[in-house]
Design a binder for these strands. Structure first.
Lengths: 189, 189
DNA sequence: TGGAATGCGTCAACGGCGTTGGCACAAATG
DNA sequence: CATTTGTGCCAACGCCGTTGACGCATTCCA
């Protein structure tokens, strides 16, 4: 995108790069998307990507995030919390930008991506849930609920089980909610 | 490794490449291991790798496999099957070659790797388990048990939760077994 | 008002990557 | 002996992420 000499000082290119990166990363994953692809999609020189975002990894971390949508995820009544959490998370991942989780998993070889995913999970699921659980091993049970969530997302969007992905979501959620609830409920009650 | 002109006709290099690849892939993952690294570790020319195994992906699929260890995984009594499956799988992944699952997940961008993992899971967990379950939605419940397994392995070895990995395995397995059992038990019973 | 500093964009190049084709040589085959 | 086959080596290809030098417009400041 060549622009005249009287162009504004702000960076239009920066937003174009972000948009192209978000689209391509979500669709083709981290290693399936090259810096040159992103630059071409944004109509920009490849070197500009690294100039603005430091590196391909920096751009990935700046665009691939799920933090904003999961506030108050574990706020419902405890007796139906398994179903509530599942509905929120799965619905989010079925919508646009659902490739984000798969893209993150595909880039876990990068330590910063591992840290990002771990922090997201801790902040929105494990931490708040552990504070709400009663009974023994609340922290352990909350972490295992996080593992269960990762497992379902994994089987739906990362290494998809076709039979599972094709079933009505309500059936899948109902059954899996029982498994989550087995860890949410106080085992001594 | 230069060898004299009277070398034996069989392929010593092939086994050296396999061994180096298994070690390096399990430790550093797919994209963290280069063909040139493997060749150097085997004392061999990089071109030999592709000559014998077709491609880096071919070598990866030939060396990274978990099939052999999971026969009869779901054969125990139904009432304690959750605990039995977990113990087998987690013990296997804690031992040497435990990096295999993480390596596979890190290479899921390759369609053949996705197919390999899906087939392994279907063959050793989902299929046999679905045949043993009673009650409604046996197939769905078996698939969700597979998702739970992936989730725990994910949180232990792919994107490790330090708090979880550090706990005594028995506590973790006991708690998670309840969650698996919630899907194994007939929900109408 | 003139000069330095800053930020944006362009271009060419670097080293590393997976992969390929050509060549050499020993062993097996007729 | 001639051919084919398997094995190994070397040089090179195109793509990758990344970097440094440079041009240019704008802004800041003495």
């Amino acid at each position: 995108m060549r622009r005249g000499p009287g162009r504004p000082p702000s960076s239009h290119a920066q937003r174009a790069i972000r948009a192209a990166a978000a689209r391509l990363f979500a669709r083709h994953g981290y290693s399936g998307t090259s810096v040159r692809d992103i630059a071409a999609g944004a109509g920009v020189d490849p070197a500009l990507v690294n100039r603005h975002f430091g590196s391909k990894e920096g751009l990935f971390l700046a665009t691939m995030s799920v933090d904003e949508d999961f506030r108050g995820l574990v706020d419902g009544p405890l007796g139906e919390l398994g179903r509530a959490i599942l509905t929120r998370v799965v619905t989010r991942m079925d919508g646009p930008g659902g490739g984000v989780f798969a893209a993150l998993v595909g880039a876990l070889a990068l330590p910063e991506v591992r840290a990002h995913l771990a922090r997201s999970t801790d902040e929105h699921v494990v931490g708040p849930l552990a504070r709400r659980l009663s009974g023994p091993d609340a922290d352990l049970r909350a972490r295992l609920v996080g593992a269960q969530l990762h497992g379902l997302l994994f089987s739906l969007h990362v290494s998809p089980d076709p039979e599972l992905a094709q079933r009505p979501r309500a059936e899948v959620l109902d059954a899996y909610a029982r498994a989550l609830q087995a860890l949410i409920d106080d085992p001594t009650a």
